[in-house]
């Protein structure tokens, strides 16, 4: 196995004796692997396993290796795997800027430095001056961009996407989708995308793994 990228080594997830997921694959930096399957097929379960929040109701085996580091038994906060869900899940009690600050790693020290990085990040996604805004007042596309940027600021080494575009209208979906994939490619992140939407898979352009039901 190569030292960079995200490897799923014989990952098998079962529930009540039924096998939901059985996958072995390697995602190179900047590559997108799309996992497709109907709802209830265990797509999201696979992502829970990779970020480390799988419920006890499931029995899982296999290893997850990220850039040569075995993260299978690490706590979610130590894995450096970012995730975007179908909903943006911006923390509603924090402002847009505070949401980004939540993501920005603590190794960035000094209030002024952190503030300027957040301003720059907002600039980067075309939301200049939005720092003090209530996230609920943003449009769907703007929220999606903030959620992406919040995740990127946490310095992830891999990116998981759980049907992240399905709530947006068609036009926005294309914009946000290409923004996410561009950023991931630019940062050389391996991307694991689960979706039931063929357009997502086509836009991702990578290999497709199908889960049966």
């Amino acid at each position: 196995m190569p030292d960079t990228g995200l490897s799923l080594e014989s990952v098998v997830i079962r529930q009540d004796g039924r096998t939901l997921v059985d996958i072995s694959d390697h995602i190179a930096p900047g590559e997108v692997l799309t996992v497709m399957g109907p709802s209830g097929s265990g797509k999201s379960t696979l992502l829970s396993y990779v970020i480390g929040t799988l419920s006890d109701d499931f029995a899982a085996s296999g290893r997850v290796i990220l850039n040569g580091r075995d993260i299978t038994d690490l706590a979610p906060e130590q894995r450096r795997v970012g995730i975007l869900f179908q909903d943006e899940l911006l923390f509603p009690h924090l402002s847009v800027g505070e949401n980004l600050a939540f993501g920005l790693r603590a190794t960035v020290k000094g209030r002024a430095e952190r503030k300027s990085q957040i301003e720059a990040a907002l600039d980067d996604i075309g939301l200049n001056g939005f720092a003090s805004r209530d996230p609920e007042t943003l449009s769907g596309g703007q929220k999606a961009r903030v959620a992406l940027m919040r995740m990127l600021l946490s310095g992830p080494q891999a990116l998981l996407l759980d049907e992240p575009f399905s709530r947006l209208d068609t036009e926005r979906r294309d914009q946000v989708r290409s923004l996410v994939f561009d950023r991931a490619r630019a940062k050389g992140l391996p991307v694991l995308l689960v979706t039931h939407d063929h357009a997502d898979a086509e836009a991702a352009g990578g290999r497709v793994h199908r889960l049966s039901d």
């Binding site: 706590a75 795997v81 995730i83 899940l89 923390f91 993501g103 995740m151």
Partner: peptide
């Protein structure tokens, strides 16, 4: 919604965080 917790964990927050 537990997914807020998952997102926060993925962003580096501990359980207590």
């Amino acid at each position: 919604d537990a997914r807020y917790g998952y997102v926060a964990r993925a962003l580096g927050a501990s359980c207590d965080g």
